[in-house]
Nucleic acid binder design. Structure first.
Lengths: 190, 190, 190, 190
DNA sequence: GATGAATGAGTGTTCATTCAT
DNA sequence: CATGAATGAACACTCATTCAT
């Protein structure tokens, strides 16, 4: 028997991201995705159970990779502000290197599909950040507020600033990114 | 009859919002929307050119209504902080009274459909806010930063906090909302 | 609006019978049936919920028509033997005039599809015959046996004799048919 | 190894019978049959040329086995009635021990597939019975009628009585079977 | 103005079969 | 010998839209 071609799976992920970004979930048909990936529509079913499985797998795949990228060189012993700034910078770095993947997960997260994903399991990949925030609260460096409020000000503005749909043409230099972080820090610091 | 017409159009808007939220753009077919609205699929074409027109009209319709709601009792002569807090409060009020409409525009704004809408024209409905921010910068009350940065911290967190998809079950009291505004204000104030 | 075209429904019934007889259930696809009937595959769904519904409707339709044909000029007051011979003759008449319809219901009745049909409801169309047999038993003209035994010898041989699959080329004259009935009568009479 | 081969072939026959009975020809795909048999779909093609070959082989296989079972302990020297009663009893015995195989050949025989089988060749397995009937006619014990008429009354009722699709729940004791034979004999005897 | 009938184009998916190992 | 990978063709069915009334 032949061996499964992982390149094809990768090509399918890539084609899914590209098409969903360009024409949306509604028009990203299985046959279009397969054609974009250079395989037969039926081959898609060798790698994924069905269309839903393909979409969810693509999403989970990217989310995990993003988590890993953001937490690379995570150093628990730095000051809290420095840790969060590092995360902030990594996030922008990831997004600028993978704008299409980022756009995909944003669109996915705002679609009914997201209800089919085990969010709890995915959040585990981001738990070190949550723990840092918690520590900041305990050390009275960060405002005593429920987690969603802090997450909202620490990470939500990124969705806007890095998204070409909302900020097309906005160039973000390293300085801009750090200054934006200062604003985020002002929002959450005590 | 005029009245009956408008009722049907309104029913179609409502059905569109409901179905798109529940099953997404991909599965919200014209016939399903028509059935939900209690009219024939062909009647839909009396009011809208095609499906795209229906979706875009629904989006623009809500966006405008939201703009009006947020800027109701807008008072130019108040202190800048008070004006923005009023806008902030109005935004949460609108969302809590129209969670489905809000969810629809969030999903729409994160889909390729949004590219078909004249964003510039829509933004006019929100220009008084932009002017207030501009005034704040000139009066050195607000940080001197490009507009997207300020918008990102002033309004983007709301998307997260008010969205049941990200913060399901989070109850926001009037006090919570004001404290969240304090964080936004800390981010943008000088 | 247009009015539903009953001719199309009739054409679909006819095409179903023809194709299923020629190539079997397995290869009688919706599109082939539609093409044979001269309508679009999607038009089929205007008249039937799905393929299953089409097949079952075709079966039930024929079964009812056959029941009516067999029981036409049913006369309760004749001697029992004459009544049953009339039914026997009518059955052969129906089959020879509708060999394709007959073949279809035979094939259907020997497929798993038959499990989806409410047999009890269908049998009502044949109840006068059952009652005659019952009367024959009571009058000690017919052997005292459970109903299936009598039905098996009265009607089952017809399936064989009239079926071109088993008796291709067998010509049945009026005399042949009556002689065959004599054999059936010998089997069940006291 | 020879043994292993035959086991797989046998498993494929068995799986074919089971699936075709349960879901019909239309839905009995090669891959489902292979999975049911515990082999790979491609292995199926080691034993059979294609799907058609598998189905026909299954049919012919069973038909032959049934012929052998029915004619076991065939004794030419017994009285004709006794010979036929023996065949009759053997047939019921075979069916009650192999209801699934029996159902398969009934369904197959009522499908267009049967046209692909060389019936003449198969009938040879049953020729001793035909000869007995012929002898009966010559000895003026059996009615002088063409063969199909006699076959129809001698064997067709069995299809009905033994088929769970038509006579679900009908229990046939040895006495019942013999009484049914008496009816068949009444039909064909002079 | 409003409708159900009708359809060509397209959907997601499974099929029988072949290929490479 | 036996297999899982791979696929073009076909499947049942739904789509957005138009037509006739």
């Amino acid at each position: 028997m032949r061996t499964k071609d992982e390149q094809k799976k990768e090509a399918l992920f890539k084609a899914t991201v590209k098409l969903v970004n360009e024409i949306g979930f509604a028009y990203s048909s299985v046959s279009k995705i397969a054609k974009e990936a250079g395989v037969s529509p039926s081959t898609l079913y060798v790698f994924f159970q069905n269309k839903e499985d393909l979409l969810i797998s693509t999403y989970v795949n990217i989310k995990r990779a993003k988590g890993r990228a953001i937490l690379s060189d995570f150093n628990d012993s730095l000051p809290i502000r420095d840790i969060l700034r590092k995360v902030w910078r990594n996030t922008f770095a990831y997004i600028s290197h993978n704008p299409d993947k980022y756009q995909f997960i944003e669109q996915f997260a705002n679609s009914p599909y997201v209800g089919l994903v085990d969010q709890k399991a995915l959040e585990k990949h981001y738990s070190p950040i949550i723990e840092v925030i918690q520590k900041g609260i305990e050390q009275k460096i960060i405002k005593k507020a429920e987690r969603p409020y802090l997450v909202a000000f620490l990470f939500q503005p990124i969705s806007y600033l890095a998204n070409p749909r909302s900020c097309e043409g906005l160039e973000l230099s390293a300085g801009d990114i750090d200054r934006a972080f200062d604003m985020a820090w002002d929002a959450i610091k005590r």
